[in-house]
Amino acid sequence: MFLSQSQTIRSSPCYFTHLELPTEIDPKNVSKRRKPFSSISSNAACHTVDMILPHELWEVVKSSITPESLQTEYHKVTMTLLEVISGDFFNYYIKTGNIFLLSEGRPHIDNRFSLKDGILRLELDKPTYERCGLTGRAIPSLGRKHIKSRYVIELNLRLAQMVRGKKGFDRIVWAFTRVLNEPVKWLFYDFHRGQKSRGEGTTCPIEHQNSVLCECILSIQNIPNAVVPIAKSSGAMKDQDYQEQLLEWLGLLSMDSPRVQTTDKVDKYICRYEVPCMSTQDAEDKAAPQQLVHVQVQGLMMSRSIISLFLQLRDSQKDYWFSLSAKSFEGNAYSILCTQGRETLVWELD
């Protein structure tokens, strides 16, 4: 406002969708191309998942939402890229099994690697890419336009020709020996964990790598006296300001802000936030404050676990609303709100 227009950087848009889900969804056969499941599965892994639900609903589902039931055990491990594509680890996890690997590094800034469905993805800066000698493609970077400064190499390691002795594979080995040869910190998730037994007395290859077994951390916070501004009429959902305010309200609940509680009597000088209010009828409805629960899961959450979590909440009690938000490692986020009538609101942020 007080600085030149160039100071106001264009913000990333938020895609809002208001939809109605069918009454029955088969958990084993979820269409991943349709919302809201498409927005969940477009982010392979998330580091924080926030759920906000009324206390009554939490009493029903709390026995089934535990770190064990979510199957979120993952490993932290330090390996070089060469170790990933060699020996037992390569044969057991990549050629025959199904794992997810994600390396340390900020998106768009550092060199980062990930492995999903047998495809190793290397996101590199230009100097490293040029030294690698592998073919990739340029991706848009955050800096200047029309300047190629970041590249992505995608290698499908499940192909039949990806074995030692073949030319293409030896080039990868060369790159991982000469260029990308530093140890990297990884997060490791095995989709077939516990399904495949290697026989008694033997251990999985990941345990030879000095890995640390981790579990997602579940933290539960009670929010008493919260005002719930979810409008009953779907006409209200078409108001863009309301869509934004509702998202902000979900954000405030996810950070345990006291501003959403009726007991909060803060001066206007400090904060002028007010819970959104749509019409007089809604204003009457929201007069009765609810007791809410904020459940936060921190750790490596795969999209599959989040979908099952969502369906679990949705199918448990039809009379309560709930919301589920997640932040991914790529810096994306999404929020899903299921109202009492099982209408679903989805916000996607890239």
Partner: peptide
């Protein structure tokens, strides 16, 4: 039958 029917969608470009 599993298809979700989209009632409304919009893009929020200018957050407050």
């Amino acid at each position: 039958p599993q298809a979700a029917s989209i009632l409304h969608s919009s893009t929020l470009r200018l957050p407050q």
